[in-house]
Design a protein around this nucleic acid. Structure first.
Length: 616
RNA sequence: GCCGAUGUGGCUCAGUGGUAGAGCACUCGAUUCGUAAUCGAGCGGUCGCGGGUUCAAAUCCCGCCAUCGGCUCCA
C-alpha cells in the first residue's frame, strides 16, 4: 500500500480520500478486450523468444488466463528460472523492434504446407481440430503461429514493465497424463506497470491469507513428517474450531430429523466389492491389510474406508424397514482415508485422511425430490451462517464415454433428472461438469475458491439408485410390497479439513466470535489485577466462553500486540479503575476501543454474540 | 505419479569448501508499567535423511523423504 501510494503521484482527479487513491482497479479478463489482446500478443512474443533461444523447442498451445497467460513447449530440456530471465530479456528486444502483428487467413491445405515447412507436428494436431477460416498471426516477418486472436497491432503497444514471467511447470499434452509432458511457462501481462504492481501486491496479500501460513501462526494444526504426508494433526485451538463447527451442524441436523450413527474406520474388502469401490475406486484406497499370505492371495483382508456409505447401508439393512421410517437420515462425522497421489497433497485442502460431515438418506422414490430440496436448504443455511457467499453450483454428471461408473443408463438418467429438477425448482445458477460425477451417481456440488483462486469442492448432494441395487436394499411399502429405496449422499461441509482451510482464508484468520478458538483475552495492566482477572476468567469459563488471562507479566502494550497477532476477537483490559468499578475496558479487533463496560453487560453481550453467530 | 524449485534452532531467515549465526519465541533476573514490542542474561541446531568426493562438506556429487508452484486426479 505504502509503496504504491508513493509511486502514484496525486493528481487533481484523485479522490482526496487516501484509501481511494491507493486503490487501483485491476481489470478482469471478462471486462477487458484490451487485456486479451495484450496477453495473446505477449504469449506470442514469449514463444518467439523461446524458439530463438531454444531452437529445438516446439510450440503447442498458449492461451490467456485470468491473471496472465501461458505457453506450452516441447523442449528436450526443462526450462529453469534462469532461462526465464533470458527469455524475458529476449522478449524486450522483440517488443522494442516494434514488429507489426499481421493477421492472415489461409486455407487448410496452405496451413498444413506451412506447418510442414517449419516442422511443428503439434501444430498439425491443433489444426486438425480447428474450423475454417484458419487464421495465422505474424510478428513482422519473424515468427507466426496458428491463433484465433485478437492481438494488438504492433508489439510496441506492449509495455515491458507491465510484463512478468512467473514460473515453469510440467504440463501434459492435451491434459492427458499418458501423453508427452511439455514445459509450461506462466507469465502475466497488464495494460500498465501500475496494474502489474497492484497484481503483485494482491498476490502477496493472498499469501498472507494462506491457511497453511495462518494455521501455523495461529496454532490450529500441524503436519508431522513422522506421521506422514496429508495427515493433519489438530492442536487444541484447531480442535475447538473443528468441534464448534461440528456442534453447529449437529444442532442443525437434529432439528431436521437426522439420526446420528458411528461406524468403524476399516472393513473387509468384501464390503467394498459389493459397493463397487474395490472395482472402481481402488487406486484411491490405501492398500489392503491382510493377516497372512493366504488371506492376501484370496483378497480376504481389511481396508481403510475411503467413504462411509457402505457402513451406513449396513445399518439400514440391519432391520426390515417400513415406509413409515423413511426418509431415514443416518449422519456421522466419518473419517475416511484416500490414497491421494503425493503431488496433489497440500495444506488442509487436499489430505489423505479427512472427516466427512456425511449423511445417507434412504427415501422412497416419491420422497426424493422434496428430500433433495430439504438437503439443499440445509446446505445453503450452513453457508449463510458461515458467511460464505462466493460459491458456484456444479451439476456433476457422468461422462457417458467413460467406463469408470457403475449401474445402468436408466438409473443414471433418473438420478441426473432429479438433480436437474431440484436446481430448476430453486432457480439456482449452476454450470455442468461432465465427468465430475461420483462413480455411483451424479452430484450437485458447491465450489469455492481459496486465497490463491484455486477451486475446491466443499458441499455436495448426490442421488444414487445404484448402491441400493447393489446392496439389495428394501422397504415395505403401504401395500405390503417390497420396494427399493433411493439414496441421497450429502455433506454440507464436504470435509471438516477443507472447510477449515477455506474458512481460515475467507476470514483471513479473523474468526467470528462463535468460532474463535480463544474468544476473549483478559489483559491486566499490572500484577495487582491478577486475582480479579482470574476471577472474571473463571466466571466467563463457567458460562461456556473460551477465555484466557494474560498473566505473563508483560506490559499492556505487549499484551495487546500479542492478542492482536493471535487475532483474539475481544480483548478486555483490566487496571485499578476496572477492578474498582467491576468493569472491563473492551477492545475488539473489529472496532478498536469501546471503553469500560460493566462485567455483567460484557457477559450478556458475549453470550448473545456467541449464540447468534454475530460480533461483540 | 510427472516437471521445476526449496529444505539451517519452536518460528522467520543469513551463511556456497576451512571453528554454525541473527531476530522472534522459550527460561531466569531486574522493571510494576493504561491500549500494537521494557531492559539484561541464558537455554536451544547430528544444517531433511542416507551414501559419495575431499586433508576438510550446511556448502560439491548421487539416491531417498518432505514441502512449495504447476500438470494429472479429487471432499
Amino acid at each position: 500500500m505504502y509503496s504504491l501510494k508513493r509511486s502514484q503521484p496525486m493528481s487533481v482527479s484523485d479522490a482526496p480520500n487516501s484509501e481511494q487513491s491507493a486503490k487501483i482497479h485491476l481489470p478482469r479478463m471478462s471486462e477487458s478486450e484490451a487485456l486479451k489482446k495484450i496477453r495473446h500478443t505477449t504469449s506470442h512474443v514469449m514463444a518467439m523468444a523461446v524458439q530463438k533461444l531454444f531452437p529445438k523447442a516446439q510450440v503447442t498451445i498458449g492461451p490467456w488466463i485470468e491473471n496472465g497467460f501461458y505457453y506450452d513447449f516441447d523442449n528436450p530440456e526443462p526450462f529453469t528460472e534462469k532461462d526465464l530471465k533470458a527469455i524475458k530479456k529476449e522478449m524486450i528486444k522483440i517488443i522494442n523492434r516494434k514488429l507489426p502483428v499481421i493477421r492472415e487467413e489461409v486455407s487448410r491445405a496452405e496451413a498444413i504446407a506451412r506447418i510442414q515447412a517449419i516442422g511443428e507436428p503439434y501444430k498439425l494436431e491443433i489444426l486438425a481440430g480447428l474450423q475454417e477460416p484458419i487464421t495465422l498471426y505474424h510478428l513482422g516477418d519473424q515468427w507466426w503461429d496458428l491463433c484465433a486472436g485478437p492481438h494488438v497491432e504492433n508489439t510496441a503497444e506492449l509495455d515491458p514493465k507491465a510484463i512478468e514471467l512467473e514460473s515453469v511447470a510440467g504440463a501434459y499434452w492435451r491434459g492427458d497424463e499418458t501423453k508427452a509432458q511439455l514445459q509450461r511457462i506462466y507469465g502475466t501481462a497488464w495494460e500498465t506497470p501500475e496494474q502489474l504492481a497492484e497484481y503483485k501486491r494482491r498476490k502477496e496479500e493472498a499469501l498472507k491469507r494462506d491457511h497453511r501460513r495462518l494455521g501455523k501462526e495461529l496454532g490450529l494444526f500441524i503436519f508431522s513428517d513422522q506421521v506422514g504426508p496429508g495427515l493433519p494433526l489438530w492442536t487444541p485451538k484447531g480442535t475447538v474450531l473443528r468441534s464448534t463447527l461440528e456442534d453447529f451442524l449437529k444442532q442443525e441436523q437434529l432439528k431436521r430429523g437426522y439420526l446420528p450413527v458411528v461406524t468403524p474406520h476399516i472393513a473387509r474388502v468384501d464390503l467394498f466389492k459389493t459397493s463397487g469401490h474395490w472395482q472402481k475406486y481402488q487406486e484411491d484406497m490405501f492398500p489392503m491389510m491382510a493377516e497372512d499370505e493366504k488371506a492376501k492371495a484370496q483378497e480376504q483382508g481389511f481396508v481403510l474406508k475411503p467413504m462411509n456409505c457402505p457402513f451406513h447401508i449396513q445399518i439400514y439393512k440391519s432391520e426390515l424397514r417400513s415406509y413409515r421410517e423413511l426418509p431415514m437420515r443416518l449422519a456421522e462425522f466419518g473419517t475416511v482415508y484416500r490414497y491421494e497421489q503425493s503431488g496433489e497433497l497440500g495444506g488442509l485442502t487436499r489430505v489423505r485422511g479427512f472427516t466427512v460431515d456425511d449423511s445417507h438418506l434412504f427415501v422412497t422414490p416419491e420422497q426424493l425430490d422434496a428430500e433433495f430440496l430439504n438437503v439443499v436448504d440445509l446446505i445453503l443455511t450452513v453457508f449463510k451462517s458461515l458467511q460464505l457467499k462466493n460459491f458456484r453450483a456444479r451439476l456433476s454428471f457422468r461422462d457417458p464415454s467413460s467406463d469408470k461408473y457403475i449401474g445402468s443408463n436408466e438409473a443414471w438418467e433418473k438420478a441426473e433428472g432429479a438433480i436437474r429438477r431440484a436446481v430448476e425448482t430453486l432457480g439456482m445458477n449452476y454450470f455442468e461438469g461432465i465427468g465430475e460425477a461420483a462413480f455411483y451417481g451424479p452430484k450437485l456440488d458447491f465450489i469455492f475458491q481459496d486465497a490463491l483462486e484455486r477451486e475446491w469442492q466443499l458441499g455436495t448432494v448426490q442421488v444414487d439408485y445404484n448402491l441400493p441395487e447393489r446392496f439389495d436394499l428394501e422397504y415395505v411399502a403401504e401395500d405390503g410390497t417390497r420396494r427399493r429405496p433411493v439414496m441421497i449422499h450429502r455433506a454440507p461441509f464436504g470435509s471438516l479439513e477443507r472447510l477449515v482451510g477455506i474458512l481460515i482464508e475467507e476470514y483471513a484468520g479473523d474468526f467470528p466470535l462463535w468460532l474463535a478458538p480463544i474468544q476473549v483475552r483478559l489483559l491486566p495492566v499490572g500484577e495487582e489485577q491478577y486475582p480479579f482477572v482470574q476471577q472474571v476468567a473463571a466466571q466467563l469459563r463457567s458460562l461456556g466462553l473460551r477465555v484466557e488471562a494474560a498473566t505473563s507479566g508483560d506490559r499492556l502494550g505487549k499484551l495487546i500486540r500479542d492478542a492482536e497477532k493471535d487475532k483474539i476477537p475481544v480483548m478486555a483490559v483490566v487496571g485499578a479503575k476496572e477492578v474498582e468499578s467491576n468493569a472491563l475496558s473492551i477492545r475488539t479487533r473489529a472496532s478498536g476501543e469501546l471503553g469500560a463496560i460493566p462485567v455483567s453487560e460484557v457477559l450478556e453481550r458475549l453470550q448473545s454474540a456467541s449464540k447468534h453467530y454475530s460480533n461483540f
